[in-house]
Design a protein around this nucleic acid. Structure first.
Lengths: 187, 187
DNA sequence: TCCATTTGTTCGCCTTGACGAACAATCGCT
DNA sequence: AGCGATTGTTCGTCAAGGCGAACAAATGGA
């Protein structure tokens, strides 16, 4: 994850900054005024010189109404399809629980996709993941109860659930069997 | 989106940094050595003083193998459920196309969730969204062809598709009707 | 055309971040 | 205990970032 970063931060910041500003359609002068910075500073940044302080970049991001990360992290991923049922069955089989890691997303955005299949009436406990982990669950068949151990939620096909993966959580089938897609963001 | 930021960047960086380092289980000394920084610098940062340069923070993030944004952006959201079919029908109806904005996610992480329903044999064109927008699509019923206008993909229930929303894209029903969940990240 | 305004870049000055050394506090081993 | 090593904090020094002013280029009315 970290090894895909540009050698120097400026290589990504400079173009991103210019792009963001032009998207906003405002001049260097205007941005400087709004953000409370010197235009000279911004000029240097966009030209790839310097090494801005976090507060400086912060001010810019806030003014442009752009998330900080967009100025700091590389571009975007692209098209990717995952076919239902084509999950390479992979590790961590526990009982009949099968979690197939469908795709470890492209560098930069660390987002993994799992297709999980739960057998009848089984409960699966998951330990807390790393800080910043967010899980997105979309039920594709069956019914189940899932979510943080403290407050699991009953779900039907088409239902969507998101929760922080930082705490212990559970998946429990209510129907004969249930399948769901799980998008796990490590943010 | 921007108004939920902390007043000063350090208010979020300082604790995040300490947390991340302790998670990694290494000492200030060790981190300094690995990241090629002075321990004094790190000490001050964790104590909430100063205003680090981007490259400095960058080095820390890379060394801790933590995405830059985690050091800079606030914590995480929490549990949220969306029931299938409970979509408040909302604006942008085009023909029989119905896109219900199910939930505009909590401040910080800007992630919107839509449930979209497409009538038979209809094609829906979507203009490019803002830079950094990523779409995640999970088909819950029916079959459709979706994705960037240049290379749409055929999808069945349970299939997952992700693509950059920065370019024009399309949704076209192949079956009688199709429904899908759409997670839209503005990142 | 001319002039006024605004664009973005380049210049010294001053503040401030990053460094290394010296520091006190804690831990670990015998 | 006793001592060595390592923890994290505080100090002075130096380099670098951020500032405002002065600058040249491009724009746009009258």
């Amino acid at each position: 994850m970290s090894d895909s970063r540009a050698a120097t931060a400026l290589e990504v910041i400079a173009p991103a900054l210019r792009h963001a500003r032009e998207d906003a359609g405002i001049s260097l002068n205007e941005l400087a005024k709004r953000a409370g910075l010197a235009k000279s500073t911004l000029s240097q940044l966009e030209s790839g010189a310097g090494n801005p302080s976090v507060e400086t970049l912060w001010a810019v991001a806030a003014t442009l109404e752009v998330p900080f990360s967009r100025l700091v992290e590389p571009p975007a991923p692209h098209v990717k399809v995952i076919r239902s049922g084509r999950a390479p069955k992979l590790g961590s089989e526990q009982g009949d629980f099968a979690a197939g890691l469908l795709s470890s997303c492209p560098a930069g955005a660390s987002r993994d996709l799992y297709e999980i299949t739960l057998p009848p009436e089984q409960e699966r406990h998951a330990e807390p993941h790393h800080r910043g982990t967010i899980e997105h669950l979309v039920v594709t068949s069956g019914t189940l109860r899932a979510g943080p151990a403290a407050e699991p939620v009953e779900l039907e096909p088409g239902d969507y659930l998101t929760f922080s993966g930082e705490v212990a959580h559970v998946y429990r089938t209510l129907s004969r069997q249930a399948t769901a897609l799980l998008i796990m963001e490590h943010k």
